[in-house]
Nucleic acid binder design. Structure first.
Length: 252
DNA sequence: ATGGCTTCATAGTGAAGA
């Protein structure tokens, strides 16, 4: 089954892109972040009419996550149970026997910001919760916008970014902590082109110059098999794109 | 150069993203 993750930066603006990409990519499970849509306004009918099941947890203006799938989602979890949070950043469900966890990890703003402390606390809670979740659901995939570039090769200019938010040592340590739980970065299971990124700044022709970062990831537990994983730059080339593009993995 | 672009929000000297 093909699973994917895409920070759409407003589902309202990007609905057509999402529908088109779902159809052409033949994706079975698509995790969305930054839907920026209250649940009452979620475009449920449009997606159902296209033949998909959807679960979602959103709010006005900021954040918001959703899982779109060809098969029905069960055992839906909204938010981290061990972290009091008004921000809608996590939704999980069991689909085709695999625990799908969709996350929008906080950005952090800068290492000096209160939001950075919130990010690290959120990551610590995610780690603790996943430890238990993996016992309950050994077949698990963690997809989303992590807002972490795990290594320097995931950053277009690692010297300029050194120590900054998205690449700082505590953030990378948190990412490695997830890997120590047995979760594997599907993208790095395969030979990949150099300078592969999933996000490019809207400003200064970031995409055209490939000034990007790989901050969207799909991690899978050890008992999940993966036969391919890649980044689809296609949607980033469209008119009025999200600043992120979809990442995907073929798993069984 | 703390900008640059995009979104949602409100009408702010805006906020947030990454």
């Amino acid at each position: 089954m093909k699973i994917a993750s895409w920070n759409v930066n407003s589902l309202k603006i990007r609905l057509e892109h999402v529908q088109n990409w779902l159809a052409e990519s033949q994706t079975d499970v698509l995790c969305l972040q930054e839907t920026k849509t209250e649940d009452a306004n979620f475009p449920l009918q449009e997606l159902q009419q296209a033949g998909y099941h959807v679960v979602y947890s959103g709010q006005k203006t900021y954040n918001g996550v959703a899982i779109i799938s060809k098969c029905e989602a069960a055992e839906i979890q909204y938010g981290l149970p061990n972290f009091e949070d008004a921000q809608k950043r996590l939704i999980a469900a069991t689909i085709n026997g695999i625990r799908i966890v969709c996350v929008y990890i906080p950005n952090g703003e800068s290492t000096e910001s209160d939001k950075y402390q919130y990010k690290l606390a959120w990551l610590a809670a995610l780690h603790e919760w996943l430890k238990a979740e993996l016992v309950r659901y050994p077949k698990l995939a963690l997809l989303g916008d992590y807002n972490i570039a795990p290594e320097d090769r995931d950053v277009h200019d690692p010297v300029a970014w050194a120590g900054k938010v998205l690449v700082s040592e505590p953030e990378r340590a948190a990412f490695q902590g997830l890997q120590k739980l047995g979760l594997r970065d599907t993208f790095r299971l395969f030979e990949q082109p150099e300078k592969s990124y999933s996000w490019w700044d809207y400003r200064m022709m970031g995409f055209r110059r490939n000034h990007g970062m790989r901050i969207d990831h799909i991690l899978i537990s050890q008992v999940v098999n993966c036969t391919a994983s890649s980044i689809d730059k296609g949607p980033r080339k469209l008119e009025r794109p999200s600043d992120h593009t979809p990442v995907w993995a073929e798993i069984s």
